[in-house]
Protein backbone atom coordinates (compact mmCIF):
# COMPACT_ATOMS: atom_id res chain seq x y z
CA UNK A 1 0.00 0.00 0.00
CA UNK A 2 2.79 2.43 0.87
CA UNK A 3 4.47 1.94 -2.49
CA UNK A 4 1.13 2.58 -4.18
CA UNK A 5 0.99 5.92 -2.37
CA UNK A 6 4.63 6.63 -3.17
CA UNK A 7 3.88 5.99 -6.81
CA UNK A 8 1.33 8.77 -6.67
CA UNK A 9 3.68 11.33 -5.15
CA UNK A 10 4.93 14.18 -7.32
CA UNK A 11 8.35 13.71 -8.93
CA UNK A 12 10.32 16.75 -9.94
CA UNK A 13 11.56 16.25 -13.53
CA UNK A 14 12.21 18.41 -16.51
CA UNK A 15 9.74 17.14 -19.08
CA UNK A 16 7.09 18.39 -21.44
CA UNK A 17 4.44 16.70 -19.33
CA UNK A 18 5.64 18.50 -16.22
CA UNK A 19 5.46 21.82 -18.02
CA UNK A 20 1.87 21.35 -19.12
CA UNK A 21 -0.80 23.33 -17.34
CA UNK A 22 -2.14 21.31 -14.41
CA UNK A 23 -5.70 21.96 -15.56
CA UNK A 24 -5.00 20.23 -18.84
CA UNK A 25 -3.53 17.25 -17.03
CA UNK A 26 -6.50 17.13 -14.66
CA UNK A 27 -8.78 17.16 -17.70
CA UNK A 28 -6.73 14.33 -19.15
CA UNK A 29 -7.04 12.19 -16.03
CA UNK A 30 -10.80 12.78 -15.82
CA UNK A 31 -11.28 12.17 -19.55
CA UNK A 32 -9.47 8.83 -19.37
CA UNK A 33 -11.67 7.91 -16.44
CA UNK A 34 -14.77 8.64 -18.49
CA UNK A 35 -13.41 6.79 -21.52
CA UNK A 36 -12.60 3.73 -19.47
CA UNK A 37 -15.93 4.08 -17.72
CA UNK A 38 -18.02 3.91 -20.88
CA UNK A 39 -16.13 0.94 -22.30
CA UNK A 40 -16.39 -2.52 -20.83
CA UNK A 41 -14.69 -4.70 -23.40
CA UNK A 42 -11.13 -5.94 -23.21
CA UNK A 43 -9.82 -4.66 -26.50
CA UNK A 44 -10.50 -0.90 -26.13
CA UNK A 45 -9.49 -0.95 -22.50
CA UNK A 46 -6.19 -2.64 -23.33
CA UNK A 47 -5.57 -0.02 -26.00
CA UNK A 48 -6.22 2.72 -23.45
CA UNK A 49 -3.81 1.15 -21.00
CA UNK A 50 -1.03 0.67 -23.52
CA UNK A 51 -1.51 4.10 -25.05
CA UNK A 52 -0.47 5.61 -21.72
CA UNK A 53 2.97 4.04 -21.66
CA UNK A 54 4.40 6.51 -24.22
CA UNK A 55 2.93 9.34 -22.12
CA UNK A 56 4.74 8.06 -19.04
CA UNK A 57 7.90 7.99 -21.13
CA UNK A 58 7.27 11.56 -22.22
CA UNK A 59 7.05 12.53 -18.55
CA UNK A 60 10.29 10.65 -17.73
CA UNK A 61 8.50 8.69 -15.04
CA UNK A 62 8.22 5.23 -16.59
CA UNK A 63 9.89 3.37 -13.72
CA UNK A 64 7.74 4.94 -11.01
CA UNK A 65 4.65 4.64 -13.15
CA UNK A 66 5.29 0.94 -13.68
CA UNK A 67 5.90 0.55 -9.96
CA UNK A 68 2.55 2.13 -9.18
CA UNK A 69 0.84 -0.27 -11.54
CA UNK A 70 2.67 -3.17 -9.95
CA UNK A 71 1.72 -1.97 -6.49
CA UNK A 72 -1.93 -1.92 -7.48
CA UNK A 73 -1.79 -5.60 -8.50
CA UNK A 74 -3.13 -6.90 -5.16
CA UNK A 75 -6.23 -4.78 -5.67
CA UNK A 76 -6.49 -5.99 -9.25
CA UNK A 77 -6.30 -9.60 -8.10
CA UNK A 78 -8.96 -8.86 -5.51
CA UNK A 79 -11.28 -7.51 -8.21
CA UNK A 80 -10.66 -10.53 -10.41
CA UNK A 81 -10.95 -12.94 -7.49
CA UNK A 82 -14.27 -11.69 -6.16
CA UNK A 83 -15.81 -11.51 -9.62
CA UNK A 84 -14.62 -14.99 -10.50
CA UNK A 85 -15.99 -16.23 -7.20
CA UNK A 86 -19.47 -14.85 -7.82
CA UNK A 87 -19.43 -16.10 -11.39
CA UNK A 88 -18.50 -19.50 -10.06
CA UNK A 89 -21.41 -19.32 -7.60
CA UNK A 90 -23.68 -18.67 -10.55
CA UNK A 91 -22.05 -21.62 -12.28
CA UNK A 92 -20.97 -19.73 -15.40
CA UNK A 93 -17.23 -19.89 -14.89
CA UNK A 94 -16.86 -22.16 -17.90
CA UNK A 95 -17.92 -19.34 -20.21
CA UNK A 96 -14.60 -17.88 -21.39
CA UNK A 97 -16.32 -14.72 -22.70
CA UNK A 98 -17.53 -13.95 -19.22
CA UNK A 99 -14.01 -14.51 -17.91
CA UNK A 100 -12.68 -12.06 -20.46
CA UNK A 101 -15.20 -9.47 -19.35
CA UNK A 102 -14.09 -9.94 -15.78
CA UNK A 103 -10.47 -9.47 -16.78
CA UNK A 104 -11.56 -6.36 -18.69
CA UNK A 105 -12.91 -4.93 -15.43
CA UNK A 106 -9.47 -5.36 -13.90
CA UNK A 107 -7.85 -3.66 -16.87
CA UNK A 108 -10.30 -0.81 -16.51
CA UNK A 109 -9.13 -0.35 -12.93
CA UNK A 110 -5.52 -0.35 -14.16
CA UNK A 111 -6.39 2.36 -16.67
CA UNK A 112 -7.71 4.54 -13.82
CA UNK A 113 -4.54 3.98 -11.80
CA UNK A 114 -2.33 4.57 -14.84
CA UNK A 115 -3.86 7.90 -15.78
CA UNK A 116 -4.06 9.23 -12.24
CA UNK A 117 -0.53 8.16 -11.59
CA UNK A 118 0.69 10.03 -14.67
CA UNK A 119 -1.26 13.05 -13.48
CA UNK A 120 -0.02 13.07 -9.89
CA UNK A 121 3.54 12.08 -10.71
CA UNK A 122 3.95 15.03 -13.07
CA UNK A 123 1.86 17.67 -11.28
CA UNK A 124 3.21 19.32 -8.15
CA UNK A 125 0.56 19.67 -5.45
CA UNK A 126 1.29 23.40 -5.40
CA UNK A 127 0.36 23.57 -9.09
CA UNK A 128 -2.70 21.44 -8.60
CA UNK A 129 -3.92 23.55 -5.74
CA UNK A 130 -3.31 26.65 -7.83
CA UNK A 131 -5.31 25.11 -10.66
CA UNK A 132 -8.19 24.33 -8.32
CA UNK A 133 -7.98 27.84 -6.92
CA UNK A 134 -8.20 29.39 -10.37
CA UNK A 135 -11.12 27.12 -11.17
CA UNK A 136 -12.99 28.71 -8.28
CA UNK A 137 -12.42 26.20 -5.48
CA UNK A 138 -12.21 28.12 -2.15
CA UNK A 139 -8.63 28.83 -1.07
CA UNK A 140 -8.98 27.29 2.38
CA UNK A 141 -9.86 23.99 0.77
CA UNK A 142 -6.89 24.14 -1.61
CA UNK A 143 -4.62 25.01 1.28
CA UNK A 144 -5.87 22.08 3.32
CA UNK A 145 -5.19 19.74 0.47
CA UNK A 146 -1.69 21.11 -0.05
CA UNK A 147 -0.81 21.06 3.64
CA UNK A 148 -2.00 17.47 3.91
CA UNK A 149 0.44 16.51 1.18
CA UNK A 150 3.20 18.62 2.66
CA UNK A 151 2.90 16.92 6.04
CA UNK A 152 2.36 13.34 4.91
CA UNK A 153 6.09 12.55 4.76
CA UNK A 154 6.57 14.24 8.13
CA UNK A 155 3.89 12.04 9.67
CA UNK A 156 5.33 8.91 8.09
CA UNK A 157 8.72 9.74 9.57
CA UNK A 158 7.12 10.37 12.94
CA UNK A 159 5.28 7.04 12.81
CA UNK A 160 8.56 5.24 12.14
CA UNK A 161 10.29 6.97 15.04
CA UNK A 162 7.44 6.15 17.40
CA UNK A 163 7.50 2.53 16.31
CA UNK A 164 11.24 2.36 16.93
CA UNK A 165 10.87 4.05 20.32
CA UNK A 166 8.23 1.58 21.46
CA UNK A 167 10.09 -1.42 20.11
CA UNK A 168 13.07 -0.21 22.12
CA UNK A 169 10.77 -0.56 25.14
CA UNK A 170 10.10 -4.21 24.35
CA UNK A 171 6.96 -3.84 22.25
CA UNK A 172 6.77 -6.71 19.75
CA UNK A 173 4.43 -5.69 16.98
CA UNK A 174 4.13 -8.98 15.14
CA UNK A 175 3.52 -11.35 18.02
CA UNK A 176 0.22 -13.07 18.77
CA UNK A 177 -3.16 -13.22 17.05
CA UNK A 178 -4.82 -10.45 15.03
CA UNK A 179 -6.62 -8.88 18.02
CA UNK A 180 -3.53 -8.89 20.20
CA UNK A 181 -1.63 -7.36 17.30
CA UNK A 182 -4.17 -4.60 16.79
CA UNK A 183 -3.95 -3.79 20.49
CA UNK A 184 -0.20 -3.43 20.20
CA UNK A 185 -0.69 -0.51 17.85
CA UNK A 186 -2.27 1.61 20.59
CA UNK A 187 1.13 2.75 21.93
CA UNK A 188 1.96 3.93 18.42
CA UNK A 189 -1.36 5.53 17.53
CA UNK A 190 -1.77 7.61 20.68
CA UNK A 191 1.51 9.56 20.38
CA UNK A 192 0.83 10.02 16.68
CA UNK A 193 -2.61 11.49 17.26
CA UNK A 194 -1.45 13.69 20.12
CA UNK A 195 1.43 15.00 18.01
CA UNK A 196 -0.84 15.65 15.06
CA UNK A 197 -3.07 17.79 17.27
CA UNK A 198 -0.11 19.68 18.71
CA UNK A 199 1.21 20.23 15.22
CA UNK A 200 -2.15 21.52 14.03
CA UNK A 201 -2.10 24.08 16.85
CA UNK A 202 1.36 25.35 16.11
CA UNK A 203 0.58 25.49 12.41
CA UNK A 204 -2.56 27.51 13.08
CA UNK A 205 -0.53 29.87 15.23
CA UNK A 206 2.08 30.33 12.51
CA UNK A 207 -0.63 30.84 9.88
CA UNK A 208 -2.38 33.48 11.95
CA UNK A 209 0.97 35.21 12.40
CA UNK A 210 1.24 35.43 8.64
CA UNK A 211 -2.08 37.13 8.06
CA UNK A 212 -4.18 34.08 7.28
CA UNK A 213 -7.64 35.24 6.27
CA UNK A 214 -6.67 38.91 6.32
CA UNK A 215 -8.11 39.87 2.98
CA UNK A 216 -11.14 38.61 1.16
CA UNK A 217 -9.35 39.07 -2.10
CA UNK A 218 -6.24 37.00 -1.66
CA UNK A 219 -3.62 37.59 -4.33
CA UNK A 220 -1.68 34.67 -5.67
CA UNK A 221 1.94 35.17 -6.61
CA UNK A 222 1.67 32.56 -9.31
CA UNK A 223 -0.75 32.68 -12.21
CA UNK A 224 -1.49 29.82 -14.55
CA UNK A 225 -1.67 30.82 -18.21
CA UNK A 226 -2.57 28.43 -20.99
CA UNK A 227 0.06 28.31 -23.72
CA UNK A 228 0.04 26.91 -27.21
CA UNK A 229 1.15 23.46 -26.09
CA UNK A 230 -1.63 23.40 -23.50
CA UNK A 231 -4.28 24.09 -26.14
CA UNK A 232 -2.71 21.42 -28.32
CA UNK A 233 -2.73 18.84 -25.54
CA UNK A 234 -6.25 19.81 -24.57
CA UNK A 235 -7.45 19.31 -28.14
CA UNK A 236 -5.76 15.92 -28.35
CA UNK A 237 -7.47 14.76 -25.17
CA UNK A 238 -10.81 16.13 -26.32
CA UNK A 239 -10.39 14.38 -29.66
CA UNK A 240 -9.62 11.05 -27.93
CA UNK A 241 -12.67 11.50 -25.77
CA UNK A 242 -14.93 12.05 -28.78
CA UNK A 243 -13.35 9.08 -30.53
CA UNK A 244 -13.97 6.91 -27.49
CA UNK A 245 -17.67 7.82 -27.51
CA UNK A 246 -17.86 7.27 -31.24
CA UNK A 247 -16.23 3.85 -30.84
CA UNK A 248 -18.59 2.98 -28.03
CA UNK A 249 -21.71 3.65 -30.06
CA UNK A 250 -20.68 2.84 -33.62
CA UNK A 251 -18.02 0.13 -33.37
CA UNK A 252 -18.39 -3.40 -32.16
CA UNK A 253 -15.28 -4.84 -30.56
CA UNK A 254 -14.50 -8.53 -30.95
CA UNK A 255 -13.50 -10.63 -27.96
CA UNK A 256 -9.80 -11.32 -27.96
CA UNK A 257 -9.98 -14.85 -26.60
CA UNK A 258 -11.07 -16.38 -29.95
CA UNK A 259 -8.39 -14.30 -31.69
CA UNK A 260 -5.70 -15.65 -29.40
CA UNK A 261 -7.10 -19.14 -29.78
CA UNK A 262 -7.03 -19.09 -33.53
CA UNK A 263 -3.57 -17.52 -33.49
CA UNK A 264 -2.30 -20.34 -31.29
CA UNK A 265 -4.25 -22.84 -33.34
CA UNK A 266 -6.11 -24.38 -30.39
Amino acid sequence: MSSLLEGLAFQKRDSLLHKLDPRVKLFYALAVMVMAGVHNKMLPLLVMLLAQAPLAALGKIVRLWARTLKASLPLVLLIIGTNLFFTWLRGSLTDLYIVEDILALAVRFLVFVASFSIFTLTTSPDDLSLALEQMGVPYSFCFMFRAALRFTPVMVREARTTMDAQRARGLELDKGGPIARARRYIPILIPLIVNAITRAWSMAEAMESRAWGASRKRTSLYVLRLRGRDYLAFSAVLFSLIMAFYAKFYLKFPYIIPIIRSALGI
Binding site: R210, A211, W212, A214, S215, T219, L221, V223
Partner: peptide, 11 residues
Protein backbone atom coordinates in the same frame (compact mmCIF):
# COMPACT_ATOMS: atom_id res chain seq x y z
CA UNK B 1 4.81 34.54 -0.59
CA UNK B 2 2.13 33.12 1.73
CA UNK B 3 1.85 36.13 4.06
CA UNK B 4 1.82 38.89 1.42
CA UNK B 5 -0.65 36.83 -0.62
CA UNK B 6 -2.97 36.68 2.36
CA UNK B 7 -2.75 40.45 2.66
CA UNK B 8 -4.02 40.70 -0.91
CA UNK B 9 -1.12 42.89 -2.03
CA UNK B 10 -0.60 43.58 -5.73
CA UNK B 11 1.30 40.78 -7.46
Amino acid sequence: AFGPENLGLPR
